[in-house]
């Protein structure tokens, strides 16, 4: 399934909704969207990922990019990631650096 992304800023919170497959071919779309919301200096970033079916390491690199771009104090939330994506976050230690939640606001 091809990758889809949209974003909005609401009360200083950047909400990005991701769907389909995030691989090295589609990661640049994610990067553009991060750059777009970074311009608004959000205080938190929420990734709605319940419809994200695949995420390669290129997607993880973009989470690092977001952290660097927004600053280390900006917390990143992943809302409802699928099991296989949680496995990847666990395998790579990313699980300790992002918040996995069932809904946002928590």
């Amino acid at each position: 399934m091809s990758f889809t992304i949209s974003s909005e800023i609401s009360n200083k919170v950047a909400i990005l909704t991701l769907g389909g497959s995030l691989d090295s071919s589609s990661a640049s779309d994610f990067q553009s969207e991060i750059q777009k919301v970074a311009g608004e200096s959000p205080s938190e970033m929420v990734l709605q990922v319940s419809e994200l079916t695949f995420m390669a390491s290129a997607g993880l690199r973009m989470i690092v990019f977001a952290k660097q771009k927004l600053g280390p104090s900006v917390q990143i939330y992943l809302v409802k990631p699928q099991d296989q994506i949680i496995d990847t976050l666990q395998m790579t230690g990313f699980i300790h650096s992002v918040h996995i939640v069932d809904k946002y606001p928590v």
């Binding site: 952290k67 660097q68 280390p72 230690g93 992002v98």
Partner: peptide, 8 residues
């Protein structure tokens, strides 16, 4: 793998 994301 246990470093803060922005530094690893």
């Amino acid at each position: 793998l246990s470093m803060p994301l922005e530094e690893r």
